[in-house]
Design a protein around this nucleic acid. Structure first.
Lengths: 159, 159
DNA sequence: TTTTTTGTACAGTTTAAACTGTACACATTA
DNA sequence: TAATGTGTACAGTTTAAACTGTACAAAAAA
């Protein structure tokens, strides 16, 4: 009876936490998967995840791989256990911020580069001042991307 | 010939900029729509947007409405013109950061509240220490949400 | 070696999101 | 008043994402 109640609360916590994880651009499944691994705390197998979340093992395999790529989950070894074991990284704020800020920085740098390339193309074809408007807009866009870049680089310093 | 080339560059700029806008959780259409309005600079009608992007007027209507809700686009009036006119807000960094930080703050506050509610439920049903594990995890989650809250509130100060 | 176990590639299916077209309400003009 | 123009609600369609099940490759056990 008490256990039942606690299981219910535990599940509610998982659902709420998963909503937060989704904010970091993780899919609903990845979010629930991470939340589950984090709350359980101990290394778990694909079958255990599949059983607990009621989803296919394939989904667990691809989902947990994404989480490992993002450095949110790590694979662990235990002697005598043949199955792969996965465990959630416990440093929530550090890890989530780390990959999220990096994502923004990489994205804005890529855009900036592409826009600079377009700017030089524009300069070359600009024999008259007929395109002053687009020229100015492009400068404003570059300014915007610079500000984004600075902002997220600054933000990632605050851990 | 030159015009043609400039149109091509203009369109490339639009596409690149739209990619950045998508990072703020706007749909591809909303992103392209905003990019178009921003680059054109002048107030435009739904028909003009529809024509330029090659999408239905209904899409423009719903899309531009979202953009207005996010304060990225404003409706403007011009005497003699019956159709609705919409213009992009020019302060890119200020406006995008503003709604994005707010979105994070609201979301984390909501989760925090939900988790606090679950915490009090957990306390009530905790007659023994059997649930110390989940109790600790919940505290860690609340700590995480607090850090997120502080981070984004601090970040939104830096405009 | 053969047999068993485990993770994942891939094709197919289900589910959700994006988008369209018609129909209509509301407003403006005549 | 009627006639025309304009935005959007809504239902339906298309498109993309999420998810599943089988089948197989790699590795371990027998």
């Amino acid at each position: 009876m008490l256990d039942c109640n606690n299981e219910h609360i535990k599940n509610s916590i998982l659902l709420e936490f998963a909503k937060t994880v989704e904010l970091f651009d993780l899919s609903p499944l990845e979010a629930r998967l991470f939340a589950f691994l984090y709350i359980e705390g101990v290394p778990l197998t694909l079958d255990q995840m599949s059983e607990a979340l009621g989803k296919s093992k394939t989904s667990m395999s691809t989902g947990v791989r994404s989480l490992v790529d993002l450095n949110l989950v790590k694979r662990v070894w235990k002697k005598g256990v043949r199955k792969d074991l996965f465990q959630a990284n416990e440093q929530l704020f550090k890890q989530f911020m780390s990959f999220y800020m990096k994502k923004w920085i990489v994205a804005t740098e890529d855009r900036k580069e592409a826009l600079l390339e377009l700017q030089s193309e524009l300069e070359q074809s600009a024999l008259d001042q007929s395109n002053e408007h687009i020229h100015n807009k492009l400068n404003d866009l570059l300014d915007f991307h610079n500000k984004l870049d600075v902002f997220f680089k600054e933000a990632s310093k605050n851990k």
